[in-house]
Structure formats: C-alpha cells, structure tokens
Design a binder for these strands. Structure first.
Lengths: 244, 244
DNA sequence: TTCCCCCTCCCCAGAAATGGCGGGGCGCGC
DNA sequence: GCGCGCCCCGCCATTTCTGGGGAGGGGGAA
C-alpha cells in the first residue's frame, strides 16, 4: 500500500512536542510544513476565524491562493468553513454541500490554484465562540483518501487541539479578561434575562419587586462595565459568568 | 514506577472503538468504568452542561455524591466547572481558584464523599456554545499525579473528543436548534447590540435608518425564536452566530 | 420568468426599560 | 463599632424599545 503507515506513537509525539516548543506564527508555519511532509499530503492549513473574517492563519497554500481567497471573500462561500462551523465531528470534504453555484465556482477556482479535490477538516471550537479549522488536502483518489482518513483521523484531531492551543498562546490579547464576580441574585437576574424574560417576569419568578430586580440589573451592569442590559447579558455570557 | 505505562496505541484504539460502538447512555457508563480501570484512577466523569444545569452525565461517582452535587447546586460553585468554562487547555485541579469560601466548602464535601484531592479535566467546546467536561480524579500525591497527567494527557484529550461525539449522537433532540443562519446585516445588528450600542447608535454606525435596523433586529429575533432583543443577542452568542 | 429573500425606508401608539430620588435590615471582616 | 456588600422596597419622569401597519428595488435559485 502506498499510503504512509499509521503514525507511530513516538512520531506523533515528536510532532506535538515540536509544536508546543515552537515560537510564534513563523514557528507554526515551519511545523505545518513538517506536518505536510510527514503525512505526505499536498496541503495542510490551520485557520482561525472570527466574526470579522480571518483572525490568524498558518498554511502551506500558495501566496496566490491565499490572497485570492481573501479578495474573493471565499470565507463566506467555502463549504468547508460554513459546513464545519456548526459541526463537532471532523468531516470529509466530499460530505459537505457543494451544490450552490458559488460553492462550485469556488471549488473550480481552488483546483485551478493547485489544491487537490480531497480534503479532511477538523473543526475546533473554543470558549467565547472561538472557531478554527485544521484541514488536510490532497489529490489522491477516493479509496486512498478514505484509507488516509481512517489511518490518521485521530492524529489530526489531536494536532488540531494543539495547533489551536498554540494559536491562543500567540494571541494573548484574545485571552479572557478577569472581571468582578456577580452576586448570586445578580446571576439569577442575568440568567433569566438571557432566557428572554422581561423584568416583570423575572421579578415575579424571583418573588421580589421589580424595583429590587432593577437594583440587581444595575449592579450587574456596573460591575460588567456595560452600557445597557443587553450589553451586560452579552458580557456575562462572554465571560462565562452565566451559561446559556 | 507504580503508574501505568504510557497507553499503547492499540489499547487506546480499543477503548475508542468500544466507545464508538457502544449504545446509549448505559453503554457510555460501561465504557466509563472500563476507562477508570484502564487508567487506574478513583473516578472518571463526563458532564455535559447547560443553562438549566446538567444536561447529561456519565460518571463513576457514588449516587450519594451525584444527588448531593445537584441538590446543593454545586454546578454554580465547583471551580472545575467555572474554571474550565473559559478555558481551552486541559487543566490540573490544583491550578484552579479554590480561594472562595463556597469553593472550600465544596472541596471538603467532595473529599468526604470519596473523591480524591487530585484531578485533571479536559474542557470540551462544541458548536452553539456547547460545553462539556471530562475529568479524572484520584487520591495519589502531587508527584505521582504530575506523572499521570504527563503520561495520559493526550489520551484524555482524545477520549474527551470521542465522548462528546457520542453524547451528541445520543441526544439528537439537542441538534434541532434549527440553526437558521442570520443575514449579514442581521449579524451586524446583533453584534453591535451585543457591544452595548443603542438602536440609534447602531443605525447611524451602519448608515441606515433606525427603522431599517428594526427590521433586522425583528428578523433576527424571529429566526432565533427570541422573545426580545436581549434574548436574541444571548441566543446568537450561545449559538456562535456572533462573537463577543 | 417567477418566487423568495435581502436590503432599504416611513408612521403611529403602547409597552418596557432607564435614571434618579428616597427608605430599611442582615451578616461579614477590620 | 463601623464600613461594606448584599438583600429588599417605594415613586417620579424620561428615554428607548416593541408591535402593528405600509412601500419599493435588487439578486440569486428553481
């Protein structure tokens, strides 16, 4: 069989240790090239996404494809991105929805820029809705690709975890800000507001006057440095003070 | 040395395959006990959390501790839960914040119910703000526990991934969070509202009339099944549709 | 082409949230 | 004892949001 054998425990260990020890984005890029060679695929990519777009990236794609991807806003089109966003399990690109016209145009463009038709992507979800993707890409046929996925799927999951860990370490401004803790009643209030209840409903559910409830809401707003109730709830969720 | 050796690739494989093949929550519980025996620790637990509390659980704790945990609302107190919620990396329980009075009382109660003082937890984040925890607990001393973590940390990460995958499969009613996507303008609106701006501010920032903005907010409210703006923002964050 | 969704704009009136003022009691730590 | 944070309650006026109508242009998908 022409595919590499199942990675030995020590080979994977060595890669993970290099990844943990490497320095900055440049170090990650170096490791990424080593990963590509180790797994003998055409491309490997780690992309950290964001509401505003690409937050940080580390891949073996050509510069031409990278700029084209950004210029054409392919982030909003690429079925790999849109498909993985709501998914937990890793996925083979064949199983995604390529039916829309934009997706097919994107696919043709990708092939024209040196990508292979096969792909395997691991979604990475973090706290505060963080989302990243780790993908392997190659041109081999369906059977060979299925064997590749079966052999290396678990290694890729582990690598995805450590890649994102490294990316978080590199972007310290993304780390959660420590805030003042809310009182139990304030947490109750924020939680019920986040569930969609009005102040009157929350007050009656907590068996307190609506004015008392206001005191809690204002207290939480102040502690969270929020402009209004919606802002306070958003911050409370974002800081993990309440769970939705 | 008294700790088990690094799990061989095939032993871990066997456990993962059993996990993938097992059936329902009972099957998971069986696998959990096998994991406990395999790693030779006192307890192992997988907890899937939720706004309303515990969504599904699978652990080797005593029934007494389980009910006590729920009755005393320890979910809101347990530093393992609150600490892991904002975290991506696995964490040793010693590194969490046990300084509050409630946390110390909780710790004493846990020890009294047969838990060991050492623990290692892997946070699991999924799409739509899903959050779960996979923990190992034991009573050995600091050095032995450090060796355990170093030897098995990666296996536990992989196991956490597959446990959550199984849990998602078992709870299909969790998925029909009919992930209706928001339009770009709706995302803009929700994002800016979550940042604390008033409708007037958002409208002027987006250079649209306040009435148009209202259409977006109402559209988002409808798609998210939300009662009001605050609810809609909370859901949008919870489902990972916007980033805070 | 037709349909559907997205984007944009407008009016009105009622409901809800906010800002500011006041009051009281309980338990904890310095 | 004193201060502080937490818990609870009242009334005022103002701002903001919400719910019901209405309109038109544009672009992608079947």
């Amino acid at each position: 069989m022409s595919e590499p054998l199942v990675a030995s425990r020590t080979a994977l260990d060595a890669l993970l240790e290099d990844l943990e020890a490497c320095d900055g984005l440049d170090g990650m890029r170096l490791v990424m090239r080593r990963l590509r060679d180790h797994f003998a695929v055409r491309h490997m990519a780690y992309l950290w996404l964001d509401a505003t777009g690409l937050q940080s990236a580390c891949d073996t794609y050509s510069e031409a494809w990278r700029t084209r991807y950004l210029d054409h806003l392919y982030l909003r089109v690429d079925p790999v991105v849109t498909g993985c966003y709501q998914r937990f399990r890793p996925v083979d690109w064949k199983r995604l929805d390529w039916s829309s016209r934009a997706a097919r145009a994107f696919q043709a463009d990708a092939l024209a820029h040196g990508l292979g038709s096969q792909g395997f992507s691991v979604p990475i979800h973090g706290p505060h809705g963080q989302f990243a993707l780790f993908s392997a890409n190659d041109g081999r046929d369906d059977d060979a690709w299925a064997r590749f996925s079966a052999a290396h799927g678990r290694d890729l999951i582990l690598l995805a975890h450590f890649l994102h860990r490294k990316a978080i370490e590199i972007e310290p401004e993304r780390r959660p800000e420590t805030g003042q803790a809310l009182s139990p009643r304030e947490i109750d209030a924020m939680t019920m507001l986040a569930m969609g209840h009005s102040r009157a409903q929350v007050a009656s559910a907590l068996s307190i006057s609506e004015h008392t409830l206001r005191v809690y809401i204002e207290g939480a707003r102040f502690k969270l440095g929020a402009m209004n109730t919606t802002h306070a709830v958003a911050r409370a969720i974002g800081r993990g003070l309440i769970v939705v």
